[in-house]
Structures are given as C-alpha cells and as structure tokens.
Simulated assay, not measured.
Amino acid sequence: MLNFVRVFLVVLLLPLAALADDLPSWNDGASKQAIVDFVSKVTDEKNADFVKPEDRIAVFDNDGTLWSEQPFYFQLGFMLDRVKALAPDHPEWKENEPFKSILAGDLKGMAASGEKGVVELGMATHAGMTTDAFAKIVSDWFSASKHPKTGKPYNEMTFLPMRELLDYLRANGFQTYIVSGGGIEFMRPVTEQAYGIPPEQVIGSSIATEYALVDGEPVLNRLPKIDFVDDGPGKPVGINKFIGRRPIFVAGNSDGDYEMLRWVTGGKPKSFGLIVHHTDAVREYAYDRESHFGKLDKAMDEAAQRKWLLVDMKNDWKKIYAFETP
C-alpha cells in the first residue's frame, strides 16, 4: 500500500513539476520565452542546435547587468569612502585633485580631473597592501556601506531576475563567468555569495601584484600600476586569456560590453546575446544614451540587426531586487 501511495504522489506531482517556473521574477512574454527557447535547444541532444556541456559557457558583465550601477559604480563609492578614511594620513590631499574635490563633496570637481584623476584615485585606494588585506577591506565595506537610494547594503542591490537566470543556466549545464570592467579583486570577495560564481570564474580589471617575503612569510603585494583593463575590446581578450573557450551566451548592459557581445555572438550560430535596458525610473533608474555610467547607445542601435535580446527592465521584470515588496 505504501509503494502505491508513493507512485500515486509522483504521478500526481509530475504535471506540477513540469509547470515549475525557473524564472519567476520575469514576466511572461517574448524576452523570457526567447531565453527558455534557446536553453531548450542547446541542451536537447535531439536538436540540431545541441551544444555539449563543456561548451555551454555564459559570460555576464557585472555593473548594470547583475547589480545596480547608479548613481555611480559601486567601486567608485568604495574609492570615495577609502579616500575619506585615509585622508588623516595624507594632509596633502586637501590641496591635490581629485582628492580635494572628494573631501569637499564635490563630485563634479572630481570628474573634471578626467581619466588621469580616476587612475590616481584607484592607485591611492587599491594599492600599497597585500591581496589578503585588500580582500578584507572590500568585504568589510560591503557589509557596512549602504546604497544612497535604497539604504540597502550594496551587496543586496543585485538584480533578482538575473540571479535566477544564472541559476537557470547552471541547472542546464552552463558554466557562468563574470567578465567586468570592475576590479577583479573588488568583486571576488562577494560574487560567490551574491551570484553563486566562485572567485576563479571572475574576470576583471587588475593592478600589478608581486610576490614578497614579509618577516619570512610569503605575501602578494598590490602595486600602483595597471596590469589589465577588462573593458570594451579588453573583454574578448580577457575571455580568451582566462577561459580559453568562446562562450555561447553573453549578457551586458552598455557600450562597454559591445565588443564582448559582437565576439560571442559573431563566432557561433548557436549563441545568444542579451542586453539589460534600464527603463524603470521608479524601482531602479532609467538611463541609456546620455548616462555617465553604463551608457547604452551603439549596442542598442545594433541590437535588432544582430539579434541581441533587449530586455526592458520595467516591462520584463516582475521584481528587480529580492527585498522589493510584491
């Protein structure tokens, strides 16, 4: 009798399992269906578009694709806080840009220092310590700092629909990587908890490091020198260098992802390109062509031509953040 009950329950629950929604925070519609159709084709051995598991590689930009990037990149927020924390040891910063403007709360003045100022800011806040020390500083910052719009910790500002997409792809045999212009060692301390992506599957911009012995103990010191910029054309280079296979799925949100989108979807017919379009000014932010952070212009113009899926955040996502009230 017990076996009969078990069989009965299995048969009864099968239809419910078949109806289970792998992307519950996505509204039913063309965008969601396009993703499901692609995954179904490349994982079905009987389909002409079947892709072997070892070739099911998906790459995702981070800022603006997996977590928010407005009103500024999270890493820039980290730099601003680090300047304030380190300022007592650097009295010269009161007179030198971009530090002078930062300490005065003048972000426009900081921006006026241009790329040179950003590089100087990055070296001052990211170098001169061991890799272990930097990882702890980053982890502590994520635990304590709050996003200026929501008041939530930065590491809770991840997009729930994209986290579901990562889980859905992995459940179907995909390996998921982050390929971001952000600092690799800024992201690595938090990506496994935030997205289920381990440190070894994170590719990003980096500064030089060197091996040293300190009091007889081996360490890696972070140097004030740029090693690799993983943005724009650097993204395909980084994928080739660190992964060694051309992905079949790519997701981004800005023109900084344009070359990555082109390279991934241009190399194989069995590929999928996705662009997150920020269209929700109420729940998140609405921006594209004129934004200083996450500018989306050229990639959006070519999306239809290149068959990239342009995801409308306002209309395609039921929820943006996990903490949203339904």
Results as ranks from 00 to 15, higher is better:
V59R: 01
D227C: 06
A104K: 12
R163K: 14
D230V: 12
K225S: 04
V202I: 02
F242N: 10
L76F: 10
D140I: 07
V190M: 14
M129D: 00
V39F: 10
V118P: 11
V311Q: 10
M79D: 05
Y258I: 09
N315P: 08
F74E: 01
F242C: 08
K32H: 06
L274Y: 02
L14D: 01
R246I: 10
E210G: 07
K225Q: 07
K295V: 13
M187K: 07
D301G: 03
T191I: 12
Y177V: 10
V214L: 02
I178R: 05
A87N: 06
Q201W: 07
F50N: 04
V36I: 14
V59P: 01
P189T: 03
D21A: 06
A299D: 09
K314S: 01
P153F: 03
L76W: 12
D44T: 05
E302V: 13
D81I: 05
Y258G: 05
Y154I: 12
A208L: 06
L220R: 02
G64V: 12
S113M: 11
F293Y: 13
D37V: 14
F72C: 11
E185M: 06
V39A: 04
H292F: 14
V119F: 15
A304R: 08
I102N: 01
A135I: 01
L213K: 03
F186Q: 05
S143P: 14
F228D: 00
R82H: 06
D81Y: 06
A34P: 15
L19W: 15
V190E: 12
N253S: 06
V10K: 14
K314R: 05
G183L: 01
G183D: 02
F74K: 02
K136Q: 09
A18D: 02
Q305F: 15
D288M: 15
N240M: 15
G183A: 02
S291A: 09
I35P: 09
V59Q: 01
K235V: 04
L165F: 06
V118K: 14
M123Q: 15
I226N: 00
V264I: 12
L223E: 03
G173P: 13
I207K: 00
K225W: 04
L213Y: 01
P199Q: 03
E302T: 13
A17F: 14
I320N: 07
V219N: 00
V119R: 11
R289K: 15
G273T: 02
M110L: 15
F72Y: 14
I57A: 01
I35H: 03
E324P: 11
G182W: 01
G182N: 05
F174C: 06
R246C: 08
S180W: 05
S113L: 12
R170N: 15
